[in-house]
Design a protein around this nucleic acid. Sequence first.
DNA 1: GAAGGTATTTGACTTTTGTCAATCGCCTCG
DNA 2: CGAGGCGATTGACAAAAGTCAAATACCTTC
Lengths: 317, 317
Amino acid sequence: MPIKPSDQIMHKAAWLYYMHGLRQDEVAKQLDISRASVALYLRRARDSGIVTISTSTDLFSHETLARELEDLLGLTSVWIVPEDRQALDPAAEMPVLAATVFLDLVRKGDKVGVAWGKTVYHIADVMPFADLNGVTVVQLCGNLGAPYSYRPDQCTTEIARRLNAQGINFYAPLVLSSERLAEELRAEPMIREQLASIAECDLALYSVGGIEADSHLVKCGALTPEEMRSLGERGAAGVIAGQIIDVEGRLMDCAHNRRCISADLGSIKAIPKRIMVVQEDNKYEPLVAAIKGGFASHLIVTASMGKRLKERFATSK
Amino acid sequence: MPIKPSDQIMHKAAWLYYMHGLRQDEVAKQLDISRASVALYLRRARDSGIVTISTSTDLFSHETLARELEDLLGLTSVWIVPEDRQALDPAAEMPVLAATVFLDLVRKGDKVGVAWGKTVYHIADVMPFADLNGVTVVQLCGNLGAPYSYRPDQCTTEIARRLNAQGINFYAPLVLSSERLAEELRAEPMIREQLASIAECDLALYSVGGIEADSHLVKCGALTPEEMRSLGERGAAGVIAGQIIDVEGRLMDCAHNRRCISADLGSIKAIPKRIMVVQEDNKYEPLVAAIKGGFASHLIVTASMGKRLKERFATSK
DNA sequence: GAAGGTATTTGACTTTTGTCAATCGCCTCG
DNA sequence: CGAGGCGATTGACAAAAGTCAAATACCTTC
C-alpha cells in the first residue's frame, strides 16, 4: 500500500498545530481544508499516539514517576525524592519535604494524628515554626519506655510546639505484658475517648515499620527477635502505629496486637489525608503491605523505592 | 534546593490534562485551584517542554522527516518514499506517488509545465486516466533528436493523453549548434510566445538532472563528457529543463545554456506549485542546487535522500 | 450507469480554553 | 509594625476548539 494521503494530512495538521503552535483555523487555511476537518485530524493524531506527554527531562522524570504511582496505587499525591539528594544527607531532604507537605495539607482547626519512629522524629526536627492555632496534634499509639530515643510523645509534643498547636499525649504504654490488662486499659474512659477521637482526625503523619530483628518493636523490648521471626513466618509484613500487619495490610491476629494500646487500624484508614513517609529502601515489603491496606493517601519515597513500587503494582493488574 | 512545589502542581496538572484527558475545570477541581491557574500551569508545562509531539512510531518517522524538511527547506509539501519500497521496485512506488500528488494538485483550467527525463517519463507511465478537460500541458524545454528514449514531447503528450487534457508541444530542438541560431529561434514569434506562456503555468512537474559523464545531456549528444567535466569544474551542479545550474541554483554563464531553447529559469521559479521528483540517490548535489535555486515547492524523495537533505540544511543555518 | 453504502467534509452551534486586569497573600525593608 | 513590592491567583470576557447533523464525494456492486 502506498503512503496514505490521510495520514500525511493528519500528520501535517498535527505538526503545524503542535510543533508550530498555529491555531486550528490557521492550519485549516494553510492546508486548505475546513477548521472542522483540522479538529478531526488532530483528534485522530492524538488517538494514534502521535502526541504524548514527554518525560525526557531529568527534572520531570521523578514527577512522571510520581504521577504514575498516583495512578497505579490510587493515591492522592506522591512525592519522589531524588536518589542522589537522599544519599547526600539522608536525614535532611526527605524530612524537609515531608514537613513542607505536611504544612501544606494542614488546615486551621484540623486534628492531626502522629505516629512514632525515626522518620517522624526527623520530620518533627525540621518542621518550621508556624502559627497554627486551633490545630490539635494527637498521638496515634501508646508510649514506649523512657530509654528509647524516638518516643511517640516526643514526636507529638515537638510538632505541636513548632506549630503552636495543642498537643494531646497518650497516657498509656504502647505494649502491655498481658492481653487482659490491655483490654481493661482500653476500656478506661479516658483512654477509650482518646482512641475514639483518632477517627476524627483530618490528617495523619507516619511511616511504616519493618519486622527485622533490629526493628523498633524489638529494640524497645516489646517483642523478642524470635517472636518477630515467628510472626514473619506467619505472614507479618510491617508495623503501623505499633501494630503488626500482614502482607495484605490487615491487622495480624496475634498476641502482640492484642497487648497493644494503639489506634484502631480502621480509624486510621478513615482519616482523609494519610501522609506516609518512607526513607529506608529496606522498608519495601512493609510499604507494599501498608499501601495494600490503604494506610496512605499521600506518599513520600525515594526514587528507587518509587521505581520498585511501580514495577510491583504495574504487573499486579 | 528542594523539589519546587510549583513544579509538582504544574506537572500534575499537565498529567491529568494530557494523560488522563480531563478538562481544565476537572483538573482545577481535583487540584483545588481555579481553572485559570490550570490554564497557566499548562502553558508553563508546554513552555518547559513537557508536552511534545512524539515521533516514535515507524509509520510516522517518515512523516516527521517530511515535516522537518518542509520547515528546513521552506517547502510547501514533502513526501518521503520508504527505502525498502523504493528498493523493491524502483520504477513503481515513487512515480505512483508522484502521479497521485500531481493529480491532487492539478485543478481544472490549470496550465501545467512538464520537463523531461527518465523520472518524468515513469510518472507519465503510471499516471491514471482522468478527465481533466480544460487543463493544458506544456513542454518546459525544447526537443531532443529522435533516437533518445525519454523525449520531452513524449512526456508531455502521454500525460496530456491520460488526463484528457490539451498537450502543447515545443517545436524546437533543445540544443542548437550555435548561439546565434538559438538566439534567432528564441526571437521567433511562435517560440517566444510559447516560452513566455510558461510563466503562466500553475503547476510544474520535473526532476533535476545530474552532470556526470553518463547524464542525459551527454548521452543525447548535447555535450561531450569533456565539456561536462569542465562545467563541473566551473561550479556546475545540476540540470533544470536542459539548462545547467551552479551549486547555488543559478543559471550558469556558459555556451551550452546560450545554445539552449528552454524555459527561462525565472519563469519556472514563478510557477506557484513546482513538484520536484528525485528517484536516484546520486542526484544529491543536483537536488541541493535545485532547492537552493527555489525550483521546488513540492518535493518527493527517498528516505535516505531526505535524511541527507536534513543534515545538509540543518547545519547550514 | 444507477443504486447503495461508506467515509469525508463542512457549517452552525456549544463547550472549553486563553487572556488580562484586578485582587490577594506573602515577604521584605524601613 | 505598617508600607510597599512582587509573584501567585482569580473572575469575567474573548477567542478557540469540540461536536454533530447534514451534505457531499467516493467507491463498490449490480
